[in-house]
């Protein structure tokens, strides 16, 4: 019995085959495709994307910032998207790249958290565990040639220790006292390094916030896929807190004085 209705009532050959001599195994096959077959749709490019995420270590913990924009190509499509996400009681994960993949990541982490909670074994997931888990997930997906198209920062504070790490769609991982994804890696990272490297145990919460705000401002000036509306997550011994969305003061009056390119050539 051929179970595929689309095959019913058809000659075995496209050219009419009156005597049914055409081999039966040459009928169209509608079953699951081989992994290597053409036409298996996988994520080949991100669609709705978030831009940079920044994070630094400071005296009492870790701080992370990301704006609220999800772009559709060059269209500023969604302007109230949260790209910083709390996982458990000690960790924040921030994402750049494809936002639907990020929502899927939020889902699997929620599933993982509930599994851990219901075990009621006295263990809690900290940033180290979340980072290891995410790096394995991201690497496994790239190895299936079906990546989750994101750059992730994972920040946390547990058992008196700060933690800050990076994972991306290739499964590449690293840790450092300042991290930045996307455009931030080019524009903000040098600023962050200058402000933070060697001063991780000195920087106060207020100073850390200022460093991130200044970097976010620079990114807003220079990154065309950014938005002047962002959030800051603070993770310390006091736990996790993700701020409400905020705006930065920017100055654009200099723009009209610029000469030499664009509309004004004189």
């Amino acid at each position: 019995m051929d179970h595929f209705p689309t095959n019913w009532g058809r000659p075995r050959n496209d050219a009419f085959d009156a005597y049914a001599t055409h081999p039966i195994h040459q009928r169209p096959y509608n079953g699951p495709k081989d992994t290597f077959a053409d036409g298996v749709q996988r994520t080949q490019q991100p669609i709705v994307t978030g831009t940079s995420v920044l994070a630094i270590k400071y005296k009492d913990g870790v701080m992370m910032a990301a704006d609220n924009l999800a772009s559709y190509g060059s269209l500023a499509r969604f302007k109230d998207v949260q790209r910083l996400h709390q996982v458990g009681n000690y960790t924040v994960i921030g994402a750049g790249g494809d936002m639907s993949d990020f929502q899927y990541i939020q889902y699997i982490l929620e599933e993982l958290s509930v599994e851990e909670i219901s075990a009621q074994d006295g263990h809690e997931l900290g940033p180290v565990e979340i980072h290891e888990y995410m790096s394995q997930v991201m690497y496994a997906r790239r190895s299936k040639m079906n990546p989750l198209w994101n750059s992730l920062l994972i920040a946390g504070f547990k058992d008196g220790k700060r933690f800050l790490s990076f994972v991306d769609l290739l499964g590449t991982t690293y840790t450092a006292s300042t991290l930045a994804t996307g455009y931030g890696a080019y524009i903000a990272q040098p600023l962050l390094r200058k402000a933070v490297e060697g001063r991780e145990d000195i920087i106060t919460e207020e100073e850390a916030r200022k460093i991130l705000e200044d970097s976010m401002r620079v990114l807003f000036y220079r990154d065309a896929r950014s938005l002047n509306k962002f959030q800051i997550a603070t993770i310390s011994s006091a736990g996790v807190s993700i701020s409400d969305s905020m705006q930065l003061d920017t100055t654009w009056s200099f723009a009209e004085d610029i000469r030499g390119y664009g509309a004004q050539t004189q």
Partner: peptide, 9 residues
């Protein structure tokens, strides 16, 4: 056109 995902860096 297919732009294949490059799993290496």
């Amino acid at each position: 056109q297919q732009r294949a995902f490059n799993p290496y860096t």
